[in-house]
Amino acid sequence: MKHWYKILSVIIIIYTLVWGLLNTVPRLDILNETIRNVYYHVPIWFAMLFMMTVSVIQSVLSLTKNNLRNDSKAFNASLVGFFFSIPGLLTGSVWAKYTWGTWWTFQDPKLNGVAISILIYLAYFILRFSIDDELKRARISAVYNIFAYVMMNVFIMVLPRLTDSLHPGNGGNPAFAKYDLDSNMRLVFYPAVIGWVFFSYWLFNITNRISFIKNKLHD
């Protein structure tokens, strides 16, 4: 049964979509019903980070093994991760509108971090398109990918913890576990993370197969 994770991801995502809207959530000021966005917004970012990590691992493999398959996997993973950043941004933006009163703010280090990481991945794509030789492209883009990944993590993980953030768990704001993730919400939130991560892995596999077939046709 090698398809188990695909079936599981679809079932879990449907479950979280339905039960996420139906179950009871804590009544909190400002957040009110928008707290349900935790089930959609946060897991999508988890999926994106997961794909970016897969991409970097593949880049490291492509450098050490000198294998073009790993390089195309690294590219595909970053494409899928980039794809996930769009719904991540949209759900976050809508949520911000109803809780912080604005679609986008430069006050929050996490938002800036996300904007920067999207720029980094666009730069990665442009770098790839500007090199024609396949082996050279594999090596050079892998070097940039690894470097950029480390910098992105410094940005997303470290900087927000030093300055005030509007996100929970950073700066002066209380953490998730403290107030808004009660046991009822955990029943949806944790499966949602697993579901979206599996779903991203499924997309990653599909893009891999597409590029494999394209390569075969090309040869």
Binding site: N112, I116, S117, L119, I120, A123, I126, L127, S130, I131, D132, K136, I140, V143, Y144, F147, A148, M151, V154, F155, V158, L159
Partner: peptide, 27 residues
Amino acid sequence: AIASKASGNFAIMSILSFPVLMPLILV
């Protein structure tokens, strides 16, 4: 070093550097 390998496109230097310099510059 990366940009010099990438077909001598000069704009690529700033495209590559600005986003990775952001953490440094903000601090």
